[in-house]
Every structure is written in C-alpha cells, then in structure tokens.
Nucleic acid binder design. Structure first.
Lengths: 209, 209
DNA sequence: AGAAAATCACCCATTTTGAGGGACTCCGGC
DNA sequence: GCCGGAGTCCCTCAAAATGGGTGATTTTCT
C-alpha cells in the first residue's frame, strides 16, 4: 500500500510548544510538518505551497486571531482539516471555532500522543475533541429540564421562533388562532417579557427551546 | 482508595448483543451490570432499585422507543448518564437522542473495548461518540460556505430569525429601517420566498444562518 | 374534588410586513 | 476610468400581525 503522508501545518505563537509539537509529529512515520508559523497571516500566505491536510491552530495569536484564521483557511482551502489546540475551553470560543470551520478541538492539557491520534482521527472523518469539549458540545443540544413552560407552550414558542405567524401556528397545531394567542400571552407572563423577540431571546438563553 | 463500582443497566432487545455486553462488562473490575432489559418500560419501572450510574440504550425497541426512554429516564433521574448504542447513524436520530438527554452515542460497529472506554469517559465528564457521530455533531455547527447572501444580508436574516422586527434590527445594526427593508426584499428574492417564515425555514435548511 | 392545562371568544389600537417603485454612495476588478 | 455589486435611504399602500385586556369552557391529571 502506498504511503499516505499527512501534511501538517502548525500555527502557534509559543516557540516551545510549537517546536515540541513539530518534533513529536516529525518523528512519527507518516506525519510531516510542512511548516510552522507563529501567526495566521503567514500561514495563510503560504497556504498554496504548504497544501496542508491538517492545520493545528492556536486561538490567541498576535494579529489575526485563530477564529478568523480558521474562517479564512476554510474559505481558501475548504478540504483542509483544522484542529484547534488551545488552553481556552470556554463555551463561546469553542462554538465560535466550530462554527468557523474547525473540525476538532483539543485543550493543551492532553498527553502529546493524543495529538497524533487526533490528526489520524480527523483524516479518517472523525472530530477529535477533548473530553470536556465533547461534553460541552453535546450539552449544547440539551434543553433545560426545569422549564416553566408547559409542553404546549414550548411547542408554540418553538414555532414562533421559526418566524411563523399566530395564524400559521394555529393551523399547524390544529387549534384556533385565539388559542395560540392565549398560549403566547401566558408565555410572556411566565417569562416576564412583552414581545416575541424578548421571549425568544430569553428562551434561547435558558435553553427552553 | 475506595473502589468506585460503576452501576450499569442495559436496555437492548437483541438477546445476543445484550448478553455479550453484559458478559464483557461484568468481567471487568469496577463495572457491574445491575440489570439488563429488552424494553424501556421495564427499565424505567426498576429505575429506583437499579439506581444505575450509566444506561446503555438501544434505539429501536419494542414498545417505547429509545428516544422516549431517554427522556423519561433523564426526567426521573437526571444524573443518570445515558449512552446510546445502536446501528442507526442518521442525523435525525442522533440529534433527537442528544436533545432527549443522551450523553454519548456509539454505533454498533465498534470494538467491544470501546464500550468500556465510553463508560469510563462519560463517568469522568466526557461525551463518548463514534467518529462518524462526532463529525456529524461538529458539522451541525458549521454554515454553508456557498451562501447566495451577502454578509449584511446574512446578518439581517440572523436577527430576523431571532424574532426581531425591522425597526429593532435597524437600531441594532445602526441603519435606517428602510435599509433593512431593502435587505429583506433582496433576501426574499434570492431565496425565492415571500415571507419571513419561509426565509428562515429555507435558511436553516441550507445552513445559511 | 381541585388544580393545572388547554381551548376559544371578542374588544381595541398600534405596529409590522410585503410589494411596488426609485436613487444615491462606495469600492474593487477589469 | 468604467461597471457592477453591495450597502444605503426614500416613498406609498393595503393587508396582516401583534400585544393587551377580560372572560369562559373543557380536558387532564393528581
């Protein structure tokens, strides 16, 4: 079988970490660091020549940050697999990175060997994540189990959040428009809001829908 | 250090698979199968006595299906960790299961040892997933990179999808209401729709927002 | 039996929406 | 230097949607 050599680019501003990763990866058969940068701008400039299969991307960087970097790289070479490697594990950054196009997310407290596994995993169609990141991602799907809203109210609010009008909602759940109005009035009262936008905002924030 | 014995319940209607899992797990130190059922109803009935830390749940089951089962179990014992183990890997089922409260999702083509890893992982705050499932989950965050909409139009549509009115959107992005109206007219033209609800529906479907 | 949930009704004023026109900048690519 | 896309703003019009108030009946579950 032909050797499939995985071409890897590192973007990381800490020299020690960058060189450490490079050494580890280069000394592994089948993995090659084609280049290592300390900022996104340079990495993007050399993207055509480097032609990486995988980019290991830090988030906090001088100049363009990692999130923007991910976006630009994915726009220029959509097939590039990007794994974020960072110390940050707060919700906002993780979801921003994934939305921008990251295919994996590791926090720097991993064992070095995990890095190699992750590269292999993402090349095989996986999405390598540190345990805490995976949990955050999965949790993001789950609703609040202590919603003040009834099942029907939740259903109505969900349809409302899809931009549907009272009349459309009424048709879809086979009740009168007046009933929908009553449900919405009760929703507003329970959520202590006075408009559709406020209700949706609060519902999303508390994961009621 | 005190032995931490993980209490596990299996819900799986295939006798062969169920007994296989049970044998594997019971023969591993620190893991105990407290009970194994071939349907959700029985598992839920015995939930208080079984007091499982982890439930391994199949999806296709006689009677109540796995999704409903997950919901009920999480409602009764929210701290129970549920791992779905199934042959199905289509988007809809995966997201339904995660929304219902599953904390992990494995497809049955795994190596048996993966099951033990997964149980350990979920007990330690992770979210074990098969590679293809992880990729599906991560992909669900990513937007279509070939949107027909401009950046501004996307921004407007995003705000519209949060239930905001033209005037509110105008205020938030510091332009005139008339400008918002123009953007929305262009959005409708590009998406070939004639209302807010249709636009949002189409945008969500094609992951434009 | 009582409470919570779900259903429908009617009033009113205001805001929002969708569709049709037209017009003016600013900027990047050719 | 010109063209076109993107973004901005303006006007009119009629229909639809929204939010608030008040009240009432039925169903469901405990």
């Amino acid at each position: 079988m032909a050797l499939q050599n995985i071409r890897i680019v590192i973007v990381e501003d800490d020299n020690l970490i960058r060189d450490g990763f490079a050494l580890l990866i280069n000394s592994t058969y089948g993995y090659t660091i084609v280049n290592a940068y300390n900022n996104c701008e340079d990495a993007i400039k050399h993207l055509p020549e480097d032609a990486p299969d995988v980019v290991l991307m830090d988030i906090e960087l001088p100049g363009m940050n990692g999130i923007e970097g991910i976006e630009k790289i994915k726009r220029l070479r959509p097939k590039t697999n990007i794994i974020v490697v960072t110390v940050y594990d707060n919700d906002s950054l993780v979801f921003q990175a994934l939305c921008a196009g990251a295919g994996g997310y590791l926090t720097k407290n991993m064992q070095p060997a995990r890095l190699l596994e992750a590269i292999k995993d993402i090349q095989e169609g996986g999405a390598p994540m540190s345990t805490n990141i995976a949990r955050m991602v999965v949790s993001s799907f789950q609703k609040n189990r202590n919603s003040p809203l009834t099942a029907r109210e939740t259903e109505v609010l969900e349809l409302l959040s899809k931009g549907k009008s009272y009349s459309t909602i009424a048709e879809e759940i086979f009740v009168d428009k007046e009933t929908v109005r009553t449900h919405i009035k009760n929703i507003y009262w329970k959520l202590e809001v006075h408009s559709k936008a406020e209700a949706i905002e609060k519902a999303l924030k508390h994961k009621l829908i």
